[in-house]
Nucleic acid binder design. Structure first.
Length: 923
RNA sequence: GGGCGGAUAGCUCAGUUGGAAGAGCGCUGCCCUUACAAGGCAGAGGUCACAGGUUCGAUCCCUGUUCCGCCUACCA
């Protein structure tokens, strides 16, 4: 048998692509509904189809792949279902930017041709992220790749919309919604990001109609909206103002008088002036107050957030004022109105005031509350079961701290605005009879760049929609056959909310749906808990009658090393592709796993990844080492006896397997990773491989066969244990060492093996480690050069010199063979002794006759530790040179005494050592 | 405004029935010892944010304070 050759360093590039292709070719990731194992299914949070893999994806996907690979090895029927999201506004914005660069726009292209253009872009760039996911080693079932605008998923969207409508859970209504004046679309509440800014609080005087000398002072942060005021409010129990309720004030700059109403909800007597203006068309609170008092809604801004002169006329604004304000955006309208009010003498005060503004989560434009007809999902009936499912534990949120977050949000949830005035997405399945709604339909026809007509459709509030699975042919009311389809599309999150069942074939009752729903766990970042997770729970319960997943595992956000959000403009983005190229995919995956502690953001620095690249290389070289000794005779039958190091490493391995398994069950990827790291590097490499070297390197050593067998057995097991974290490296090594089966991907995951437990070996190891540690420390502190043999006297206990050699042998034999074997072994060298001798050391351990060995060792170890620690501290402070010279007298004394005693013993032990060496057959 | 999380070595973070402070990286010293210099060995470095309380004993439990982060929100 020839020893396979491995390079001195691990080269990930050569390995990764090769194995991934093989895995795919052999269909290891393809799930079969007939596989007998208990199902384990994860649906991937679908990335934007036109996006590329960033480090957040890398984290999210690495964790899922660890779970999937682990469960697959455990024999579960695993399905990891991949897919991409059409990401309405985001994708539309990307394509619109391209068009802008080409000097055109979506308007001039027209709806159909624009959508075609987006599909083209999807066709050319849609594979990018999928290919990058493959580079990361993701073991997804690519044959089941889904896209939110696939035929099947679109059918699910249609079905859900129609059913919700039929159940009265979807309605169309004119409401004040968040409006992005740049994207020209409605946004749901959670699509608005809030930001604190320094604003101003303006106090404006509104004269009383019946007696203009009496003035009410209102406080507002948005004076420009005052032109749309339709009332002012005071607290109904405010003695200052309550007698004025029912009277009217004149609205400055306009020709209107507006009522004074009493409203305990809107008005806080303590704040500002105690008088609030009500602008129902431009403020959410005021909208609600307007509902309560049946106030008219006067919109003065248009859909681009510009002051609309027609509307200003409707609002009876003074002519001159309209001239001054016509077409101004909010930002310019505010100072202008401020000037006008000041000229009028109505502006009494401006104070600094911190306030929050909302921005579009896609383009960061300041959003405006805007009055328009939109589609909504009536949410309460859906939210209640979704609250209950989490409360009663059918869905577990991990870490559980987020549970309250979820419940709190769900209990306060408001109707979900699902219509978007964009083109890319699922168009709402609602049609309007042109005849019946003729006065409510506004068509604006323009011409595209190439001469085609472009229709801009506005459907006013009150238009009667016909919601259906397909376009109606005949109006049941008037018999007309002319219909217009609602131009709006659905919120992106509407389709992704169906993801756990739409991807499995719903509304068809597919075998996949039966087998894999509910899915096992959803792995996601906190940022889309409300956007996505909450919607999936609500819609899953509604349409499947069961939760969409058992666990929700929420991981941290990835930030840069300084804890800042990664962004292109800051230049602090870590590109996972670049990292994989530089350090290898396994290193990146392991880094992300090891940093995935719950409840903390991940601050990622390249040095960390480099550290784990080194870890990969360490493993690689451990395997190389193993391979050097595997060409000996095959494992004997019956298996050879295990020596102390063999028993010890197996015991540690067993412990490691137990820990990894329970940590993974608890989604503690970080602890699992750290346990693996520690076991492999510091137990397996640093100690075990060193301890068995003597047995391996001497062909006639009696421990040789046992060591060889244990070596390969532990290596093979460790590779399986590590595989979910580092799939490529482990496959490459596993294929090189003796194994059974075609690929590590489909091997069983190591299970704890109670027969490997060896507490006595672990105890002895601790003693050995301490003893050896003391010897090493002593040698460094005493400035012994590496090759120089030393003897290290460890105790003043007794000392019958004659018995020393005997004791030494005895103790070391004890260390190497376990408590059962206390008889001196003179036939073969013990591993520990050889190891120490190899280092040029010999160790004297003196124990008086009947004393308990372990206790004695323990005491010696403690004594030495303390003294050495003290010496070490001194040395650290003073430096090597000055150590002896400047040490306090008692320490010097101690040091010198020690040296004398060392010299004395050295003579004695040197001869012992010679005898030993002779006995051991080592020169 | 409300809620949640965090504060432990120079840096990043572990640390669950309260019981003698841990890891990785970095740093210092010595080593190219036939798996690995992407390595080995050793070492330095901590009032566990601050102030109280409970306890024989607190990094851990309780109260308050300060600072940071996140989520959420209509104080005009």
């Amino acid at each position: 048998m020839s020893t396979p050759q491995l390079d001195k360093t691990y080269d990930p590039k050569a390995v990764e692509a090769r194995w991934y292709a093989t895995w795919i070719e052999r269909g290891y990731f393809h799930a079969s509904t007939t596989h007998p194992g208990q199902p384990y299914c994860i649906v991937i949070p679908p990335p934007n189809v036109t996006g590329s893999l960033h480090v957040g994806h890398a984290l999210n996907h690495s964790l899922q792949d660890i779970l999937i690979r682990w469960r697959r090895m455990q024999g579960r029927n695993t399905l990891w279902l991949p897919g991409t999201d059409h990401a309405g506004i985001a994708t539309q914005n990307v394509v619109e930017k391209q068009l802008m660069a080409e000097g055109t726009s979506r308007e001039s292209l027209g709806r159909e041709r624009f959508i075609e253009r987006v599909w083209q872009w999807k066709a050319t760039s849609g594979d990018t992220i999928v290919n990058q996911q493959k580079q990361l080693g993701e073991s997804c079932d690519w044959e089941r790749l889904r896209f939110t605008m696939d035929e099947g998923l679109s059918k699910a969207v249609l079905e859900v919309f129609v059913r919700l409508y039929e159940d009265g859970l979807i309605y169309r209504g004119e409401r004040l919604i968040n409006w992005c004046p740049r994207c020209l679309t409605a946004l749901s509440d959670i699509e608005v990001e809030h930001e604190d800014i320094k604003g101003k609080l303006y106090s404006i005087e509104y004269p009383l109609e019946e007696d203009p000398t009496i003035k009410l002072t209102v406080a507002t942060t948005r004076p420009e909206t005052m032109l749309g005021d339709t009332a002012v409010a005071v607290h109904p129990e405010d003695d200052r103002f309550k007698h004025l309720i029912g009277k009217r004030v004149r609205l400055p700059l306009t020709n209107r008088a507006i009522p004074i109403v009493g409203d305990a909800i809107l008005v806080d007597r303590e704040f500002g002036t105690g008088v609030v203006k009500i602008t129902p068309a431009h403020d959410f609170n005021d909208f609600e107050a307007g509902e309560r008092h049946r106030l008219p809604r006067l919109a003065i801004f248009d859909h681009q957030a510009l002051l609309d002169s027609d509307k200003l006329v409707d609002a009876s604004v003074d002519h001159a004022v309209i001239e001054a304000l016509r077409g101004l955006p909010v930002t310019k309208a505010r100072p202008k109105v401020e000037t006008l009010l000041r000229d009028l003498g109505a502006l009494v005060k401006i104070e600094d005031h911190k306030m929050a503004i909302g921005k579009c989560y896609r383009c960061k434009t300041v959003v405006e509350p805007y009055l328009s007809p939109q589609w909504f999902v009536k949410i309460q009936a859906l939210a209640d079961p979704a609250i209950k499912a989490v409360e009663d534990g059918r869905i577990r949120i991990i870490p559980e701290g987020w549970t309250n977050n979820y419940l709190g949000w769900m209990r306060e949830i408001k109707d979900w605005c699902i219509s978007r005035q964009i083109w890319w997405g699922h168009q709402i399945p609602a049609w309007y009879c042109e005849t019946c709604n003729s006065t409510l339909i506004h068509k604006q026809v323009t011409t595209s760049t190439d001469g085609l007509p472009v229709v801009r459709l506005t459907l006013l509030q009150g238009a009667k929609p016909i919601v259906a699975r397909s376009a109606p042919t005949c109006c049941s009311n008037c018999g007309s056959q002319n219909f217009l389809r609602d131009p709006d599309v659905l919120d992106t999150w509407f389709s992704s909310g169906l993801w756990p069942f739409s991807t499995l074939g719903w509304p068809e009752q597919t075998p996949e749906l039966k087998r894999y729903y509910p899915t096992s766990v959803l792995v996601t970042g906190l940022d889309i808990l409300f956007f996505w997770v909450a919607r999936m729970i609500m819609l899953g319960l509604k349409f499947m009658g069961d939760v969409p997943f058992r666990d929700v595992y929420i991981h941290a956000l990835v930030r840069d090393a300084e804890g800042q959000k990664m962004s292109k403009s800051k230049g602090n983005v870590i590109d996972p592709l670049h990292v994989m190229e530089q350090f290898g995919t396994d290193a990146l995956r392991f880094t992300l796993a090891s940093m995935a502690s719950p409840g903390r953001d991940i601050k990622l620095a390249e040095e960390r990844i480099e550290g784990y690249r080194n870890f990969a290389n360490k493993i690689w070289n451990a395997a190389r080492f193993g391979l050097m000794y595997l060409d000996g005779p095959k494992a004997a039958h019956p298996p050879p006896a295990r020596s102390f190091p063999d028993r010890w490493i197996l015991s540690r391995l067993n412990h490691t397997i137990q820990t990894i398994t329970s940590e993974l069950e608890a989604y503690r990827f970080d602890r699992a990773a750290s346990v693996l790291y520690h076991f492999i590097w510091h137990e397996y490499c640093d100690w075990y491989l060193e301890l068995i070297k003597p047995a391996l390197q001497d062909a006639a050593h009696p421990d040789g066969p046992g060591a060889r067998q244990t070596l390969v057995e532990t290596l093979e097991t460790t590779m399986r244990l590590l595989h979910p974290f580092m799939p490529f490296l482990t496959e490459e090594i596993w294929q090189t060492i003796p194994h059974q089966g075609d690929s590590i991907v489909i091997q069983s995951y190591p299970a704890p093996n109670e027969t490997w437990r060896a507490p006595e070996a672990e105890e002895l190891f601790t003693l050995l480690e301490q003893t050896v540690g003391l010897v090493r420390t002593g040698r460094v502190l005493l400035n012994y050069s590496p090759g120089q043999p030393i003897s290290f006297y460890m105790s003043h206990d007794d000392p019958s010199r004659n018995s020393r050699l005997h004791q030494l042998q005895r103790n070391l034999a004890h260390l190497s063979r376990g408590t059962a074997d206390l008889a001196p072994r003179t036939d073969w060298p013990t591993v520990n002794l050889l190891r120490l001798v190899t280092e040029g050391l010999s160790v004297g351990l003196v124990v008086s006759g009947d004393v308990d060995l372990k206790k004695a060792l323990d005491r010696i170890v403690k004594q030495q530790e303390e003294q050495l620690k003290e010496m070490g501290r001194l040395k650290g402070k003073l430096g090597n040179q000055e150590f002896v010279a400047k040490a306090p007298p008692d320490v010097i004394l101690d040091h010198q005494t020690r040296l004398r005693s060392l010299e004395h013993d050295q003579t004695m032990l040197a001869s012992s050592e010679q005898q030993l060496r002779a006995m051991l057959g080592t020169p």
